[in-house]
């Protein structure tokens, strides 16, 4: 049995069915991310004065990842245009580029997550706070590369313009530690919404990369038997990919810069 309207347009919508389907799906995705952006606004506005973090994320790394995703968007649209021009070899090249860029994005994001999970805030029993990246942890002591602060508020605005903290190797006996917590989603509401938003976005990137990988590899056999239908599949996966790029265009300034 043939599936209707995979290539030719349905008379009532003027579109092939998959295109209506992907736009309905993207509409639901707008509401999903919209709810999380709404959560971000509520958390940010509700945060006490001076306790919403600034400069906690690496801006050059985030900028590179943004450029990677934008580049993957142009390679996606070029792959589709190549099929429209009947150039299957060029399509293979551009789609392979998209796949590599998607994996690069996930790799850079993983590096950023790892950095946060290795970053610790340690409250000592004498009231001081040590902040830095974990070097070594034994049963007796913890070694971090970081600095001490007297007031926890000093840790929040790292873009305030003051002199940068000098990082040294600090050895802290376990007996002096009152509380030790890494910069995971449990650390602050900022990190909770950061991991939720970027984690959900990363899942979309991974999902999109799986589909792109399939259409680049075994799925591309369809080109030989039904090129129009295959081209439509590339258009649909491309629309999803552009949406993923579009979400990141808002996530980057909101989480990294503001």
């Amino acid at each position: 049995m043939d599936i209707p309207y995979t290539v030719e347009a349905r008379p009532d919508t003027g579109l092939y069915n998959a295109k209506v389907g992907i736009w309905l799906f993207l509409a639901s995705e707008v509401m999903l991310f919209g709810a999380l952006f709404s959560t971000y606004i509520l958390l940010r506005v509700g945060a006490p004065e001076g306790f919403w973090p600034h400069g906690w994320l690496n801006i050059p790394v985030g900028t590179v990842n943004t450029l990677v995703l934008i580049t993957s968007s142009i390679t996606t649209v070029m792959a589709w245009a190549s099929l429209k021009m009947n150039q299957f070899g060029r399509f293979k090249f551009f789609h392979a580029c998209t796949l590599c860029l998607a994996l690069t994005f996930v790799g850079i994001k993983s590096y950023e997550y790892h950095d946060k999970f290795m970053h610790y805030e340690i409250t000592l029993k004498d009231g001081r706070i040590a902040d830095g990246h974990l070097v070594k942890r034994t049963a007796d002591q913890v070694v971090i590369s970081g600095h001490y602060v007297e007031d926890r508020k000093e840790l929040f605005d790292l873009r305030a313009g003051g002199p940068p903290h000098e990082h040294t190797e600090i050895t802290i006996p376990q007996a002096q530690i009152k509380k030790m917590e890494n910069y995971g989603p449990w650390h602050t509401t900022y990190l909770a919404i950061y991991f939720t938003l970027t984690g959900l976005h990363a899942l979309h990137v991974i999902g999109g990369a799986i589909v792109i990988g399939f259409l680049w590899g075994p799925g591309s056999k369809l080109w030989k038997t039904d090129p129009d239908r295959f081209t439509n599949r590339i258009e649909i996966s491309g629309l999803f990919w552009h949406f993923v790029d579009l979400v990141w265009i808002f996530l980057f300034p909101v989480l990294y810069l503001l």
Binding site: W23, M31, G34, F243
Partner: peptide, 26 residues
């Protein structure tokens, strides 16, 4: 990239609903 500048009415119709509900949420 998503060709919304020259799409069919059906897509604009879906997007109009999305915009309405997103604006309502905000």
């Amino acid at each position: 990239f998503m060709h919304l500048i020259s799409e069919r009415k059906m897509i604009y119709f879906i997007l109009a609903f999305t915009t309405f509900f997103f604006a309502g949420l905000m």
